[in-house]
Design a protein around this nucleic acid. Structure first.
Lengths: 134, 134
DNA sequence: ACCATCCGTAACTTTTCTGGTTGCATTAGT
DNA sequence: ACTAATGCAACCAGAAAAGTTACGGATGGT
């Protein structure tokens, strides 16, 4: 796997689960399906569980299941759950002595933050059910 | 610097250059300004030159200058010049035997590509001049 | 009671990405 | 000639991420 694998893995898995929402799936199944490792799957899906998108059960008949209906899970939910900010810069303390520079830095950061917000807005317009489509 | 440093560096540099578009700046100046290395600056700015956003001149009085007016350079131009796709997945050959799986994979890829396009669209609505702002 | 199965988590390794650095050829002005 | 700049290639170092192994805890079947 390469870049953006987490978002991609999450999306693929959720879309797949949306097919039969009641079926319980193990991280092993999902991993094999996605061509990766059960632990990696649990790591990513754990984030989604924290965000309330999935539930997991331990033990013999344990596994993973959607916590909501597919149409109630948006791409924004997934994106935010993974806690990856794609365009927004980190809030590095601007060490520039010049105040004009500082102001410019603020402007650039602000613009990037706006772009990030618009991305989330766009993501919120599509649900997992719609990804599955048709 | 951390993630997105290239985009951030490019944006900051262009915004700064937009202040006095006729002034020639060396990679050394820019690097010192950005707290990084001249070679790194040339790497990033080289991409922008390839995309026609900047011009560079070798030799004694050489350096970098905007190739267009700041209002004619959009954030999308910069983003695309850097050739970093943030949300779109790479076109990995889908090795899934099942055709249903393949179709789902295509759907997810398609959705991500749409998101990417909408991001670029959003970026194209803001110019460097506007970033500089006010 | 026992056992197989599955999640949760930690620790470690390997790979990949990226910025930083050095060196050198080339170009251009003085 | 000399100086100062880009262009480019090669390499190093550090961080980030995936992959792997291992083990503890929970759960259900036998």
């Amino acid at each position: 796997m390469k870049r953006n694998s987490r978002l991609s893995l999450a999306l693929h898995t959720l879309s797949h689960m949306a097919g039969s929402p009641d079926r319980m799936r193990t991280s092993g199944d999902i991993a094999e399906h996605a061509g990766t490792n059960p632990v990696v799957v649990r790591r990513v899906l754990g984030k989604l569980r924290e965000a309330g998108l999935l539930t997991s059960e331990k033990g013999h008949a344990g596994g993973w299941r959607l916590a909501r209906k597919p149409q109630d899970i948006t791409l924004a939910d997934v994106y935010l759950a993974l806690d990856e900010r794609m365009v927004a810069t980190d809030e590095t303390s601007d060490a520039s002595a010049c105040s004009v520079e500082h102001a410019l830095h603020e402007r650039v950061s602000g613009v990037l933050k706006e772009i990030e917000e618009s991305l989330v807005q766009k993501l919120s317009e599509t649900s997992i059910a719609e990804v599955r489509g048709v």
